[in-house]
Measured scan of single mutants.
Amino acid sequence: EPSQADLDALLSAVRDNRLSIEQAVTLLTPSSGGGSGGGSMDAKEILTRFKDGGLDRAAAQALLAGRTPA
C-alpha cells in the first residue's frame, strides 16, 4: 500500500509530466490488473482531475489513499 510520501511523489511526477497518468495508475495498482479498488473514482480519473486542476493535492491524495486496498 502506498504511503502518503509515495502518493505525494507520484502526484508531483504526474503534474510535472515526469510520469504519465497510465504509468501512475500501473504503479498504484500493481497486482489488481489495473482495476479500481472499488472506490467511487478510479485512480486514472483522480489523477486526470488532479492534473487538470479539478482536484487539489490533498484531495487527490485522500482519494487515492482511500481507494487503495489495505
Results as ranks from 00 to 15, higher is better:
7 L>K: 02
28 L>F: 06
5 A>W: 15
30 P>E: 10
2 P>V: 08
25 V>D: 02
9 A>N: 06
4 Q>K: 14
3 S>V: 11
41 M>Q: 07
27 L>E: 03
26 T>S: 13
38 G>P: 12
29 T>Y: 13
52 D>N: 14
15 R>K: 12
29 T>L: 09
66 G>T: 09
58 A>G: 06
53 G>Q: 03
38 G>V: 15
44 K>P: 03
52 D>G: 10
44 K>M: 07
9 A>P: 03
23 Q>N: 07
33 G>T: 12
63 L>H: 03
53 G>W: 03
56 D>R: 03
58 A>L: 10
36 S>A: 13
15 R>Y: 09
21 I>W: 01
49 R>A: 07
39 G>L: 14
20 S>D: 04
32 S>K: 09
12 S>F: 05
24 A>V: 05
20 S>K: 03
20 S>Y: 02
37 G>H: 12
14 V>E: 00
23 Q>M: 09
4 Q>C: 15
67 R>Y: 13
42 D>K: 11
34 G>H: 08
43 A>E: 05
15 R>S: 06
14 V>C: 02
37 G>D: 07
37 G>S: 09
28 L>H: 02
23 Q>H: 07
12 S>H: 05
67 R>C: 09
20 S>N: 04
24 A>D: 00
7 L>H: 03
62 A>P: 01
46 I>V: 06
5 A>K: 07
43 A>C: 09
25 V>N: 03
39 G>D: 11
13 A>H: 04
41 M>T: 07
52 D>Q: 15
5 A>C: 15
8 D>N: 08
52 D>H: 14
18 R>M: 09
41 M>D: 05
19 L>E: 01
35 G>P: 14
18 R>Q: 09
59 A>E: 09
57 R>E: 06
59 A>Q: 15
29 T>D: 10
48 T>K: 08
19 L>C: 05
39 G>C: 11
49 R>K: 10
47 L>A: 02
68 T>G: 09
2 P>I: 15
39 G>F: 12
34 G>W: 04
17 N>E: 08
16 D>M: 09
2 P>M: 13
12 S>D: 15
38 G>F: 14
30 P>Q: 13
57 R>T: 06
32 S>A: 10
14 V>H: 00
53 G>V: 01
39 G>P: 11
14 V>R: 00
52 D>V: 08
48 T>C: 06
14 V>P: 00
40 S>Y: 14
62 A>Q: 11
22 E>D: 13
7 L>G: 02
66 G>P: 05
3 S>T: 07
50 F>D: 00
42 D>L: 11
30 P>R: 15
49 R>C: 08
30 P>A: 14
35 G>Y: 03
22 E>L: 08
41 M>I: 13
47 L>M: 03
55 L>W: 02
2 P>G: 12
55 L>D: 01
7 L>M: 08
68 T>Y: 11
58 A>K: 09
32 S>Q: 11
12 S>L: 10
21 I>L: 04
42 D>S: 13
41 M>G: 06
41 M>S: 07
63 L>D: 01
45 E>H: 06
4 Q>L: 14
49 R>L: 14
9 A>I: 07
14 V>D: 00
67 R>M: 13
37 G>P: 13
14 V>N: 00
45 E>Q: 10
38 G>W: 08
55 L>Q: 01
23 Q>I: 07
63 L>C: 04
38 G>T: 11
66 G>H: 07
56 D>V: 03
5 A>F: 15
38 G>A: 14
41 M>V: 09
42 D>N: 10
24 A>T: 02
40 S>G: 08
68 T>H: 10
70 A>E: 08
51 K>N: 03
66 G>Q: 13
36 S>F: 14
19 L>R: 01
39 G>S: 12
36 S>I: 10
28 L>K: 01
15 R>M: 14
63 L>W: 03
46 I>A: 02
40 S>V: 12
40 S>T: 15
66 G>E: 06
13 A>K: 05
49 R>F: 04
7 L>D: 02
20 S>P: 04
69 P>Q: 10
12 S>K: 06
65 A>N: 08
60 A>N: 00
22 E>I: 06
3 S>L: 13
41 M>H: 06
46 I>M: 02
26 T>G: 09
55 L>H: 02
49 R>E: 03
60 A>G: 01
15 R>L: 11
54 G>S: 15
7 L>A: 02
41 M>K: 06
54 G>L: 15
34 G>P: 14
52 D>M: 14
44 K>C: 06
68 T>W: 10
19 L>M: 10
59 A>T: 14
45 E>P: 02
47 L>D: 01
6 D>K: 09
54 G>P: 02
4 Q>T: 15
60 A>F: 02
62 A>T: 09
18 R>N: 06
59 A>K: 07
34 G>C: 12
27 L>D: 02
48 T>S: 08
32 S>G: 12
26 T>K: 14
13 A>Y: 05
16 D>T: 08
66 G>C: 12
17 N>S: 09
59 A>N: 05
51 K>M: 06
31 S>K: 11
45 E>R: 05
60 A>H: 00
64 L>P: 00
42 D>H: 08
34 G>R: 07
34 G>N: 12
27 L>T: 04
28 L>G: 01
11 L>E: 01
56 D>Q: 04
28 L>M: 05
10 L>G: 01
60 A>V: 06
40 S>W: 14
45 E>S: 10
51 K>H: 04
70 A>H: 03
49 R>Q: 06
47 L>E: 00
27 L>N: 03
69 P>I: 15
52 D>L: 13
9 A>D: 10
6 D>W: 15
38 G>N: 15
52 D>F: 11
2 P>Y: 15
21 I>N: 01
63 L>G: 03
66 G>Y: 08
34 G>Y: 03
5 A>H: 10
37 G>T: 12
61 Q>D: 03
52 D>R: 07
66 G>F: 10
15 R>A: 12
36 S>C: 13
45 E>C: 12
32 S>W: 09
15 R>H: 06
7 L>S: 02
37 G>Q: 09
19 L>P: 00
21 I>Q: 01
40 S>P: 09
54 G>E: 14
